[in-house]
Amino acid sequence: MNVFRLAGDVSHLVAIIILLLKIWRSKSCAGISGKSQVLFALVFTTRYLDLFTVFISVYNTVMKVVFLALSYATVYLIYMRFRNSYNSENDTFRVEFLLVPVIGLSFLENYAFTPLEILWTFSIFLEAVAIMPQLFMITKTGEAESITTHYLFFLGLYRALYIANWVWRYHTESFYDLIAIVSGVVQTIFFCDFFYLYFTRVLRGRGKMTLP
């Protein structure tokens, strides 16, 4: 464990909590892409299958349980509890365009052709594109509430910090995980456009982020 990975995990946790609290307190999931949240729940489900077979550390186990619980709670709030505030008419990204390539690639590119390894690889590739429906929804509505942009900021920051963690691990323990690194870089690149808008509009304007 290093400071970059710890900061990344904290940033990820903060992002998930920001979103969950926003939906819970505003009793509404307007402007939130339910599809992205389902994809994130799928990412955690397929990545953390080793939760019951491999014990790495208390921290690792606790965080996996927390991420799974909070992501399913968020999906529950969107599709069950506050489903009448869900903007399904704006959440129209075709997720099959994400799932088919990701499934295909995880069968082609993996460390071992075993179910656990392929599912882990699937979760890594899926996480890189899981935010697409949310970013698409924002471009479609042309705006995002500032709390949603803070959620996206911490979510994008988490994988950027993981990149720093991978650089650190490469130099300190000669360890690198090519699949995670390539996917993590792609994932962070997808956030760059948002980061630009976040720094130039939200932090300065302190209001809604309205797209040009």
């Binding site: 965080m63 000669s174 360890f175 995980d177």
Partner: peptide, 10 residues
């Protein structure tokens, strides 16, 4: 170089 899935990461 240790090159494997980083399963200790979240």
């Amino acid at each position: 170089l240790v090159f494997s899935g980083s399963k200790d990461e979240l």
